[in-house]
Every structure is written in structure tokens, then in C-alpha cells.
């Protein structure tokens, strides 16, 4: 079966809330062992999708396959395969850290002996060993976040669904969380992590899916998407000339119609040009421009390529 190859797969997954289409015909494919970044702006349908993947929400139509089986066919079996960490979560009153993990271990039906060792191991993993007997409510936001991640690991699932695990964390806690995810990925788990901040995920994810208004706009390995980007690179150049002159230079080197970038407090004209090809082509274009007498004060790549792709894909109206 083809779906065996994917840890998580959705087929034409659709969720409708009355008239609002939260998720529209989503075909998501997460390979086994991948650290998959699920990226999209707030309200794009990330949480809705993750809840459907975790078997917490009925799909209006479409299918969810996890590790080769349909989630809605055997919910409880699916729950054993998945560790889920929601974006917002609460903690129980008057509960100790070890009791919190113990409770979820009991929910998964773990025997007492394994619960004991598992609680210690997990607290070690998420670096909360010294908080073992602390009240859950007394933990900082970052610690609670880590504890919640630990709760998703009590049954040693193959697949982790993490909804904005780094939201609300300070930079240091963010880095810790990132390291933790890398560690888990190294353990061979498939991790699907969502975020509305691309930078957080771009460098550590092996694959990404970008969602906008409930629809998947791009999905694939990060390197592949990078390559796609390098096939056509966006460069910002400041010419010491008026707009007409600057555009002539650009047209002369065959870079199509550039976009004017209005810049205050700068002399000359700043244009954004799209260059087909990778680093070689970029260097060649610059050399040609100079050879044609273009006076260039500044020439640089316009931002992070993934970030650009993200902006380009998710906010088309701002470009228009």
C-alpha cells in the first residue's frame, strides 16, 4: 500500500464550520521519520488540521491516515500511535508534576512498574527532574510547555503532533524546545510541528507544508523547496540613477520587469529583480550590469528565501 510510506497522510481533508471553510481539500504527506514543519499564518487552519489528525475533530469530508491506518476507523488504536500537544492547554489544580505524567501514563494503561521508570526518564528528557514534586501550576510557562511535551511522550508514540510548541516562550526557552525536538527527531520519531513563524522551523525541518486559508500552497522537503527558490532568486539592488535609467539597465541584462521598492532617505532607485538560476547566475547578472555601466550602490539577496516564499504564498494581496 502506498500510504505505508507516509507517517501522516491526508486525502482531500475538508472541515467546514457552517459557511466558513476552515480546511479545504488538504492533501498533506508527512514521510516517516521526518521533522515536518507545518507553517501558516494565524487562522490558516493549522490547529483544525492537527486536531483532525489527532482524532479530536470530525472531518467534514476526506480521510486521515496515520501510520497506514485510517484514524476514524479505530480511534483508540490511532491515539496509541500519536502523541498530541495542543496549542493552548491547561493544567489541573493541586497536581504534582510526577502525578501529571502518572495520570496520562495511566490513561494509556501503562503498568505501574513502567510508569515509575517512564516518569523519571521523561522528566530527565525535558529537564524537569528537580521539579518532580512541584505543583504543576507553579511551573513557568516554558516548563509547563516542556511538561506538556513530556505528557505526549508517555506512551512512546511513533508520531508527534505538536501545535505551536514554542509559542509564548522566551528566546532561550525557544532554543531549548528546538533542541528537544531535534533530539526527538534523532530518536526516529516522526514530528509534525506547527508554527506561524517560519524562521523557527526553516533550518531544522526536513520537510515543510505551507497552509493558507485552509489550503496547502506548498509541501515538500525543505531542500527541494530551497532548490525551487534558487531557480529564481530575488535580489534588491540600489541604482544611482532615476527609475527610467535603472529599469533600462535591468532590461538590458534580461531580468524582466523589476519591481520598484520605494525607499526613503536613500539616494537613487531601489529595484527588486528576479534572477533565474543560482549563485552563478546572480554573479553573472551583477557583472553584466556593471559591464553595461550601471552604477550600483547596494546589491543583496532580498531576505530569507523561505521567508520570502512564505510571504509570497501566504500574502498575495500585499503584493498586489
Amino acid at each position: 500500500m502506498a500510504e505505508i510510506g507516509y507517517a501522516v497522510e491526508t486525502r482531500a481533508l475538508t472541515k467546514r464550520y457552517g459557511r466558513v471553510l476552515a480546511v479545504n481539500q488538504l492533501n498533506l504527506q508527512v514521510p516517516r521519520g521526518a521533522l515536518f514543519g507545518f507553517i501558516g499564518p494565524n487562522g490558516a487552519g493549522k490547529t483544525t488540521t492537527l486536531r483532525m489528525l489527532a482524532g479530536l475533530l470530525d472531518a467534514t469530508s476526506g480521510e486521515v491516515w496515520v501510520a497506514g491506518q485510517r484514524v476514524d476507523r479505530d480511534l483508540r488504536a490511532s491515539h496509541r500511535l500519536i502523541g498530541y500537544m495542543p496549542d493552548f492547554f491547561g493544567v489541573y489544580d493541586g497536581m504534582l508534576v510526577w502525578e501529571y505524567l502518572d495520570f496520562f501514563a495511566r490513561c494509556y494503561g501503562l503498568p505501574a512498574a513502567r510508569r515509575q521508570t517512564m516518569v523519571g526518564e521523561l522528566l530527565d528528557l525535558v529537564n524537569l527532574t528537580d521539579k518532580r514534586d512541584a505543583n504543576v501550576q507553579a511551573l513557568s510557562r516554558g516548563m509547563q510547555q516542556r511538561l506538556c511535551l513530556a505528557h505526549a511522550l508517555v506512551h512512546d508514540p511513533q508520531i508527534l503532533l505538536l501545535d505551536e510548541p514554542a509559542s509564548g516562550l522566551d528566546p532561550r526557552a525557544r532554543i531549548e524546545m528546538r533542541e528537544l525536538l531535534k533530539e526527538l527527531a534523532a530518536m526516529g520519531k516522526t514530528i509534525l510541528v506547527s508554527s506561524h513563524i517560519l524562521a523557527e522551523l526553516a533550518e531544522m525541518c526536513s520537510a515543510v507544508g505551507i497552509i493558507e486559508k485552509g489550503a496547502l500552497v506548498a509541501c515538500g522537503a525543505t531542500a527541494e523547496i530551497r532548490r525551487k527558490l534558487q531557480a529564481s532568486r530575488l535580489v534588491r539592488a540600489r541604482f544611482l540613477a532615476d527609475e527610467t535609467g535603472a529599469r533600462e539597465w535591468v532590461r538590458a541584462v534580461g531580468c524582466g520587469e523589476p519591481r520598484l521598492v520605494p525607499e526613503a532617505n536613500q539616494t537613487g532607485t531601489t529595484l527588486e529583480l528576479e534572477i533565474a538560476g543560482g549563485d552563478e547566475a546572480t554573479a553573472e547578472t551583477l557583472a553584466q550590469l556593471i559591464a553595461r555601466g550601471a552604477r550600483i550602490a547596494d546589491f543583496r539577496e532580498a531576505g530569507n528565501p523561505l521567508e520570502d516564499l512564505f510571504l509570497q504564498l501566504t500574502e498575495p494581496e500585499s503584493k498586489a
Binding site: L56, H79, R80, F89, G90, Y92, C107, Y108, G109, H151
Partner: peptide, 15 residues
Amino acid sequence: HERRTFDLVAATPLH
């Protein structure tokens, strides 16, 4: 539901 702990429990195989 109000403390947002329900999803955590619902995502387990607990009947």
C-alpha cells in the same frame, strides 16, 4: 473544557 485539559485526555485511548 474550560481549563483546556479535555483535549489532553481525549487524545488518549481512555474510554
